[in-house]
């Protein structure tokens, strides 16, 4: 049974009749160029934008469920750690908002900080953190609530290649160890190849191709082929 199912999703400016199913524990990469509607697709799943069509989480129709009740993690490109909260409090934010007990919060946050190797940053504020550290904290903040699905919107595009590679590796490990379902949006072919269980190609708001990295790159759709011919594989 699929965890997430989109049926005929259309938005005013971007998406046209998108149908997509994501299985539990799957890491799906949405590959597309700027303006293809990748972020919009995530916003639809998160309930942050208006859309027509149906969105199901485990067969439950989510159309009338507001964002805060959808049980998702969403990592935006610029992370947006709350500047007035230190690392610990940033990670604890979702738990406090959800009314968890203090002892539980402390235990949960400490656990995830260990897992992400950021325990030493506990008292730092975002202004004193590097890009890579912010990414890890942002990730921890989304994961600590154990969401059904983690949505990632080009989270590594502003990092230097080495740090980005490190975090990609960690993401992949987390995906395996926590059996995490992820929908990862990018325009970067290398990233897509390295991460994906499955790639879906989004072109001008339409899903053009879906398959494993190997399938997509060995038998690329017309648009992908043109792009690779023009720019190479990154």
């Amino acid at each position: 049974m699929s965890l997430i199912k989109l049926c005929n999703v259309t938005t005013q400016h971007c998406l046209k009749n998108v149908n997509l199913e994501i299985d539990a524990g799957e890491l799906v990469v949405v590959l597309g160029f700027t303006g293809a509607g990748k972020s919009t697709l995530l916003n639809v799943i998160a309930g942050l934008t208006e859309y027509q069509g149906e969105v199901y989480f485990k067969r439950k129709n989510m159309n009338n469920v507001p964002t805060e009740k959808r049980d998702i993690g969403y990592l935006l490109q610029d992370i947006y750690l709350f500047p007035h909260l230190n690392t610990f409090e940033n990670i604890a934010f979702g738990l406090r908002a959800g009314g968890w007990r203090k002892t539980q919060i402390t235990a949960k946050v400490e656990e995830i900080m260990e897992l992400m190797h950021i325990a030493h940053l506990r008292k730092r504020y975002p202004k004193d953190l590097s890009g890579g550290e912010k990414q890890r904290i942002g990730l921890a903040r989304s994961l600590v609530r154990q969401p059904q699905i983690l949505l990632l919107d080009e989270p590594l595009s502003s990092l230097d290649p080495a740090t980005a590679k490190d975090i990609r590796r960690e993401l992949k490990e987390l995906h395996k160890s926590l059996n995490l379902t992820m929908l990862y949006v990018t325009h970067d072919f290398v990233e897509a190849q390295e991460l994906a269980d499955r790639i879906v190609v989004l072109v001008e708001g339409e899903l053009k191709q879906t398959g494993s990295a190997q399938e997509v790159f060995s038998r690329p759709s017309e648009e992908i082929r043109d792009f690779i011919l023009a720019y190479g594989l990154g």
């Binding site: 998160a46 942050l48 507001p66 964002t67 805060e68 009740k69 959808r70 049980d71 998702i72 993690g73 969403y74 935006l76 947006y80 709350f82 934010f93 979702g94 908002a97 959800g98 903040r141 989304s142 609530r145 949505l151």
Partner: peptide, 9 residues
């Protein structure tokens, strides 16, 4: 937006 995705009212 981020706060809402983290479940905050």
């Amino acid at each position: 937006k981020t706060a809402r995705t983290l479940g905050a009212s």
